[in-house]
Nucleic acid binder design. Structure first.
Lengths: 120, 120
DNA sequence: GTCATTCGCTTCAGTTTGTCAAGTAACTTC
DNA sequence: GAAGTTACTTGACAAACTGAAGCGAATGAC
């Protein structure tokens, strides 16, 4: 990875991590509690399996996500946040606050397009 | 854009914006004060001109960045943050705090690789 | 005047990164 | 023994990013 000389490398490293596509959403989803792979894929419907697997592997090596495999019969894999991961809460909260202050629901676009719209 | 049904669309929209490559770094750079295009490109050495121009255009349409063209002789373009943009400060600060708490300088990799290393 | 330079981009070719659909290996249930 | 579940992986394709070069207007150096 390359860094700008004019900014703190640690900040740049963290930013690169967090601004990888879907990283924020995955962390947010895991803040709601641990989940198995398919469960997580359900929570974040927009993320392709391939990328979800990749991101989770990256987040695991970064020590943000914990991967626990149960030796049981239909091999279950549970993903959860480590302390390092849970410490991202203020970042997520800051984004939530900002989005509620500045993002106009109408800007967001067709929010419920498919079946959700029919149900509503 | 597509959204997960299980999370606030405003949050997802904000996250998509902020997690686009280089967006965070550009905002951070502009928090240090307004800058012209080439000046900004210098501050963020890692961003290709093409993408910088594109990101700035996006951030302008989002109302985060203000683009002011001086009618003077060698057309100067000044970029600065709007209030909406400056309100991202808590987000940037949260990431800074986290990175200083959790990112080990040695993890960051070869911090100063080129000439910087020779000078040190 | 003509050449080279600065400014704010844009264009091009090539690599990286992401998407979608399908497949796989191990095991259970019918 | 065929079908389903779980956690991924694979492959073909598309979108996004990179680095180097170009471009048009306006100087400044000679």
């Amino acid at each position: 990875m390359r860094y700008s000389e004019h900014m703190c490398p640690r900040f740049q490293y963290a930013l690169a991590l967090l601004s990888k596509r879907w990283t924020g959403l995955i962390v947010k989803a895991l803040l709601d509690g641990p989940a198995r792979f398919n469960e997580l894929a359900e929570r974040l419907q927009v993320v392709a399996d391939r990328v979800l697997a990749e991101r989770l592997r990256e987040l695991e090596t970064e020590g943000i996500v914990l991967r626990q495999v149960s030796a049981c019969m239909p091999v279950r894999v549970a993903y959860s946040l480590t302390t390092k991961g849970r410490d991202l809460t203020p970042v997520i909260e800051a984004i939530e606050t900002w989005s509620h202050q500045w993002i106009d629901p109408s800007t967001v676009g067709a929010t419920a397009d498919d079946e959700t719209a029919i149900k509503a």
